[in-house]
């Protein structure tokens, strides 16, 4: 028996020590940066572009904020006032006196929290079943779910309305929450995430004796947090801003949400006093803004997950 082996060139590469790795990464970065470096003109153009984008995004937001502190007569003037002069909290107090603002906030918080929670749980569980469990008819169930994603909700609104009205759930929290808890998007998103997980890790966990829930909780979810956070954030934002369904279902401030309530600040047929509207908009944005800043890191990771394979 021949013991000779053709090993080829012996690669000396072992795991580089951390410092070395860092140095290499920096070197790689520099190489990359230098290829992108096209002289001061392009750099300047890049900054101009960034500033433009910033303006496009920030100016309307700034305008909303500034207007919310203006007196009524200062809103429509030429030239435009870029700073409230004099500043007034009047709009904010009017906001709470003209409409039952705190009721709307309470409803929005309850409905958004309940709906988002239901969506996330259902989305994760259904995606898990549709990606990692084997059962007959799985692909048919998935196609039905995807078809649901394709149907705009304006179409299902009427039949949902009929159903909820027959149950006597109009103007109730459950009447608003339950029909919104449908999860085609979450199922789709999370299923793709789960399918992109390395199959061998799932198999390893199965061989290690993990049951379905343990597999989900200890192995699958920890690898999917970024996507889940992104999904959760998207869900919360869209539920917070959801208009059509809460509007159809609610009759008054006992269940109406903020987006519905804020419209009552606008005049139907005449001139709207935009000050309180802007104040309401600012207050409605705040919770989402805080949530976003809180989850931002995970969110960004989630959006780019899969772009770089570690």
């Amino acid at each position: 028996m021949s013991t000779s082996t053709i090993v080829g060139t012996v690669d000396e590469e072992k795991t580089p020590p951390a410092a070395d790795r860092r140095r290499r990464r920096r070197a790689a970065h520099n190489v990359e940066a230098s290829t992108h470096n096209r002289g001061p003109v392009w750099t300047a153009a890049g900054y101009v572009g960034m500033v433009l984008v910033l303006l496009v995004v920030a100016v309307p937001l700034f305008w909303i904020l500034v207007t919310s502190f203006k007196e009524r007569g200062d809103i429509y003037v030429r030239p435009a006032q870029w700073w409230p002069e004099p500043a007034t909290g009047q709009n904010y107090s009017e906001l709470t006196t003209r409409i039952p603002f705190s009721d709307y906030v309470r409803n929005s918080v309850i409905i958004t929290a309940a709906t988002s929670l239901a969506k996330i749980i259902l989305g994760v569980l259904s995606a898990y079943a549709l990606s990692l469990m084997r059962f007959p008819g799985r692909s048919i169930v998935f196609i039905v779910v995807i078809a649901a994603l394709m149907v705009p909700n304006q179409i299902t609104v009427i039949s949902n309305y009929a159903l909820v009205a027959q149950l006597g759930w109009r103007n109730t929290y459950q009447g608003i929450i339950i029909p919104l808890a449908g999860v085609a998007f979450g199922t789709f998103l999370m299923r793709n995430q789960f399918l992109n997980l390395p199959g061998e890790i799932i198999e390893a966990a199965r061989l290690d004796g993990a049951g379905p829930m343990k597999l989900l909780w200890r192995v699958v979810m920890p690898m999917s947090w970024p996507t889940l956070v992104a999904f959760a954030l998207i869900t919360v934002v869209s539920e917070w801003n959801e208009y059509l369904w809460p509007f159809l279902m609610s009759d008054d401030e006992s269940t109406a949400t903020l987006p519905v309530g804020l419209t009552f600040l606008q005049n139907n047929d005449g001139v709207t006093n935009w000050g309180p509207v802007m104040a309401g908009t600012v207050l409605a944005m705040l919770p989402i803004l805080v949530l976003f800043l809180f989850l931002q890191r995970q969110m960004i990771k989630g959006l780019t997950a899969g772009a770089v394979k570690s």
Binding site: P198, I201, E203, A204, L207, R218, V219, M223
Partner: peptide, 20 residues
């Protein structure tokens, strides 16, 4: 017999370690 009931341990090419 389910994989987890077979009492068989496997070492994968990719190692398939739990990253978390």
């Amino acid at each position: 017999v389910r994989p987890r009931d077979r009492d068989i341990a496997m070492v994968f090419q990719s190692y398939a370690l739990y990253p978390n």
